[in-house]
Design a protein around this nucleic acid. Structure first.
Lengths: 219, 219, 219, 219
DNA sequence: TATGAATGAGGGTTCATTCAT
DNA sequence: CATGAATGAACCCTCATTCAT
């Protein structure tokens, strides 16, 4: 879900032996720059330079900078599974561990950069949600897809979690922890608040698991 | 901590009977516009128009747009107590209820606007943290101040919370919940994810309170 | 001579049962758009869209936008008789009434559009005469052809008009009245100045006819 | 009413000893270029270069290229008297000779340039009347002002012209002759059609004068 | 100190045209 | 011959900032 991953996969969907085409080069450059600098701070001319493309080519493929942003967010939706979720599901089959493997994955992506970047979706959510109404649904789609994976894992956990637990709400909270934690990590250039939040989430899960376990043995 | 509150208090620190001076008018306009539109999307000329001020005047008082941003963030720091925390502390003396009164206060600020705005500090954190190194500490200062109040309340809760609970981490998590929850609220224009996250935090607190209570009666 | 007429006849010269070919579709679209928007304000891409044609196809048939303009003007020359003059000559056989039937025809073409358009040749004359030296002769050819018809009618009027009248000059004046009148009609979105000018021309003709009549009876 | 005259008078309203200010330099350059090349064919950057001005300066003074066009047309309105009408009224006091002195003045302005330019108002009338609804009234204002002078002269002619002559219509026709004549002059790069039209107008006047004279002596 | 015109680099976008497929 | 992506100069305009008054 970070820009490097997106670039790495620019040729992967569908896989091909050809050099990355213009559209992909533009999308990759735009995604990277929007992630690194934000949408408003990224000039179209910078995208063009980085993608090695002429203005006319870009505007043949995307009617506007806003439409390019929309395409970048569509691409993030496509890449949600292969880049974000698949590695996590390959790492562990325990549904609850998957939740924390996902949170750990973000830590591993961004701590080498000293949290200089943040979640590209979250960044855009705060930057353009108000000014670009047509973009909001695409951000929401990314958030919904992300939460849906977590929700499914929580469902997979079955009665290891309390029966009366609202798993949809908990899934939303996992996203909240990731986004709120990364925001503080970026501000402090330190993992502390992110780790703290994940730690408290882990403590919460432990209490839930204990309660469910008690409920199962002594109903 | 929202823009209206800031405007309401533009003459209040220090209190005075004079009309708002140029500096205050600029700060108020800039804070409001940065909150509503973001930093990069707000032109200096818009600030000038809204503040009723000439470019020369602004640049006499603030050497640059970035310096103005810094001043806005300093002001948010000053207003943290009177605008954000004092109302919460007046509402309830129960330290744990204060945590949730604080989270409720944000809900009440932004739900009438259908969550069109978000936390002004959080917005700026994601927009300028990387590009403006000199601004990061000021954002951090706001986050730290905010968390410190929560931390103090958690300390005030004494042994109602488990003795081995890391209260600093939990305070960071409360901020995480607020920021992560608001981000999703803005994207969906709905309180659902915010309420979900706060609800899960409440459930976590309930489990902590129960555990501490059990610990006290049966040590 | 207006765009609708040109379109109506796109398949008519020479008559054919086939669907309009690419070249005709381009010429029709270009003529209509140049008439409606002017030459400079009409983008090649708009012509392509309206004609349903690709850039490569257009540039196979016409080496440049300027060449397309030339072709449009050639087409107007071809259509001068069937679209502009033939209907007038069919309407009346009186050569002098033909002059005013011609002027009336323009009124009937453009007043339903509230004079939003003007003479397509006149428009281009003012827009491209200086910048496109190779186009000027084609405009001139249209004006000359137009005036030649009027001139012929004036000749046909024989001694109903004064013998010493310069009929070529009067023919030029009829075109002057049409173009100058339409220009004012466009500016005012009203027929007033056009009707005024035609009315004065009619008064002039009446005086000429009276003088010639007097000259014939009392030489 | 041509561009050189406008430039010559750039400092004249109100008269001043100072160098032409930015606004005047822009207006002069824009008027000249719109006249020489047309509105659409004139780039803002060309205006800036010719005026020796930066883009920001232009856009401080005029909100858009369209607004600049409006200002140019306002200026033409202001200059109608001093540039166009005053010299004619100084040349002769005979009201009817003034009509033909006016038409002669245009000939003298444009024939040295081989009629490469045309009436700047007429050019714009045909180029932007449809696309710029806010500009039309300004063009109309110029035409109305121009015709009003002619109308007044015709009124001044008193009973030298027939009592039942519609002088307003005749004034409109004088403008028609000027514009329609200049259009043909530009297309042919020759005075012939202009002179022809003016000649026929003179013949018409002569007939009117004769008729009025006859009417006075033998009522 | 206040004013608002001036600065000039850069903003996003469209243009007429070319060319590989 | 058709296709439509690619070209790159030019389009109109806004930006943060400076400076003469």
């Amino acid at each position: 879900m970070n820009v490097q991953s997106l670039s790495d996969h620019s040729m992967a969907f569908p896989p091909t032996n050809q050099p990355p085409d213009t559209r992909s080069r533009i999308l990759d450059a735009a995604a990277r720059l929007f992630h690194e600098q934000g949408f408003n701070a990224t000039g179209v001319s910078t995208i063009l330079r980085e993608a090695g493309v002429n203005p006319g080519s870009l505007y043949n493929l995307f009617p506007s900078k806003d439409a390019l942003l929309a395409a970048v967010l569509e691409r993030y939706t496509e890449l949600l599974h292969p880049i974000v979720m698949e590695p996590v599901e390959k790492k562990t089959s325990d549904p609850i561990e998957r939740v924390f493997a996902l949170l750990q994955q973000y830590r591993e992506w961004y701590s080498p950069l000293e949290f200089r970047l943040g979640c590209p979706i979250g960044n855009l959510a705060l930057e353009v949600a108000d000014s670009h109404p047509e973009i909001r649904p695409l951000i929401q789609q990314n958030f919904d897809g992300w939460s849906a994976y977590v929700r499914k894992w929580l469902d997979d956990a079955g009665d290891r979690l309390p029966r009366d637990l609202d798993r949809k709400q908990l899934a939303a909270t996992v996203l909240t922890v990731m986004e709120g934690g990364l925001m503080q990590a970026r501000s402090s250039r330190s993992a502390a608040a992110y780790d703290a939040s994940v730690g408290q989430l882990r403590a919460y899960f432990d209490l839930l698991l204990a309660r469910a376990s008690a409920g199962r043995t002594q109903p």
